[in-house]
Amino acid sequence: MDIQFSGEKLDKVQEIMKRYPEGKHKSALIPVLHIAQQEFGGWLDTPVMDYVAGLLKIEPIEVYEVASFYSMYNLKPVGKYLFEVCQTGPCMLNGSDQIIDYIKQKLHIRAGETTADGLFTLKPVECLGACGYAPMMQLGKTYREHLTKEKVDAIIDECRAKVN
């Protein structure tokens, strides 16, 4: 894969770097890593992180140590659709364990695994700030709330339909 942002994304990076005072552009790292993950296949491979280091004129290690700290960055490949299902207390009280089990069963994967067709990854996560709308998962940019088995079926169908 050619690791190079499009002109539009490069402009975005420049715009982000201007939000901070002179010389403090390292602050752009976390927002730029979000863009990089989105642009380069949903995870951060080492060459991608090195590219970001070059863009921000910082050392690669400064990127690695940040990428490995935050749970939204994937350091391994993930499926096209990442099911991030909350498993913390309030969601558990409303049946998130059953939802996670159902997804495992239905997709024949364990937590952290990706389906053989590369479509789905299941990632149990901690509280996403949707406790009143439990059980829930994050899928891409949005939240899917008040999950039931039927809703999970529908979400899986919806994703499959998008690739076909």
Partner: peptide, 12 residues
């Protein structure tokens, strides 16, 4: 006054 939104990346 300028106001900017900065996103974190998953860390309580």
């Amino acid at each position: 006054c300028e106001l900017y939104v900065q996103r974190g990346a998953g860390a309580y």
